[in-house]
């Protein structure tokens, strides 16, 4: 009996424990009600293009050697949250679902195009809690598809006793994404408004 149990446990461990247990983290994919309090929409027409790899972005960073296996479906939550964030930040928001071109921008009268890509995902699991960070790269183009500004934006969420609560890691991931999007939208708003002032001034 003892031997059978040992063999069974050993085989389970060797079989790839990540497929047997672990955390499969799907964030809610919606912004919190605080976001609309921190962002005011600007009267600018802006298009957003999310490369296909953004929606498919996943990470299996455990955050520690002895931590449970974890799979974070980052892109699955990032895309709808990005859409919502840009809807909140720009009054005339357009989503480009096809490869953008200068001709399309000119034909539709779109002065700016933002392209967002996820570059890095970080996870740190400690005895106390968990810290999640997301890093993105954003390029704002003008109507001729020349870059106006190129910047990196990141968002971090650090909380304790995350795994002890139902929905803890999911909400933690959601918070990190939201902070990143807050930084992106604020930076884009500043850049666009500065440019508009220069052109009008």
């Amino acid at each position: 009996m003892k031997h059978h149990g040992s063999i069974l446990l050993l085989s389970l461990c060797l079989a790839g424990c990540a497929t047997l247990f672990g955390w499969d983290i799907h964030a809610p994919g919606m912004l919190s009600s605080d976001f609309s309090k921190q962002i005011q929409p600007v009267p600018v027409r802006l298009a957003l293009y999310l490369p296909p790899e953004v929606s498919a972005y996943e990470s299996q960073d455990k955050g520690g050697r002895l931590a449970d296996p974890q799979t974070y479906h980052v892109g699955e939550a990032f895309s709808p949250m990005a859409l919502e964030a840009f809807q909140e930040g720009f009054e005339e928001f357009i989503l480009m679902e096809t490869e953008p071109s200068a001709q399309i921008l000119k034909q539709c009268g779109i002065p700016y195009l933002a392209v967002v890509a996820i570059t890095d995902f970080g996870n740190k699991v400690t005895l106390k809690g968990q810290a999640i960070a997301i890093q993105t790269e954003v390029v704002l183009y003008n109507q001729d598809l020349y870059p106006v500004i190129h910047f990196q934006a990141s968002g971090l969420s650090d909380a304790e006793k995350v795994f002890a609560k139902r929905g803890g890691p999911q909400v933690n991931l959601n918070a990190a994404i939201e902070r990143c999007l807050l930084a992106i939208v604020q930076q884009l708003q500043d850049s666009v408004l500065q440019r508009e002032e220069k052109e009008n001034g």
């Binding site: 190129h150 910047f151 934006a153 968002g155 971090l156 969420s157 650090d158 909380a159 918070a175 902070r179």
Partner: peptide
């Protein structure tokens, strides 16, 4: 709990 946001400009102009 701590929430952080940051941006760093790589290229402008």
């Amino acid at each position: 709990y701590v929430l952080e946001s940051s941006t760093a400009v790589v290229e402008e102009g």
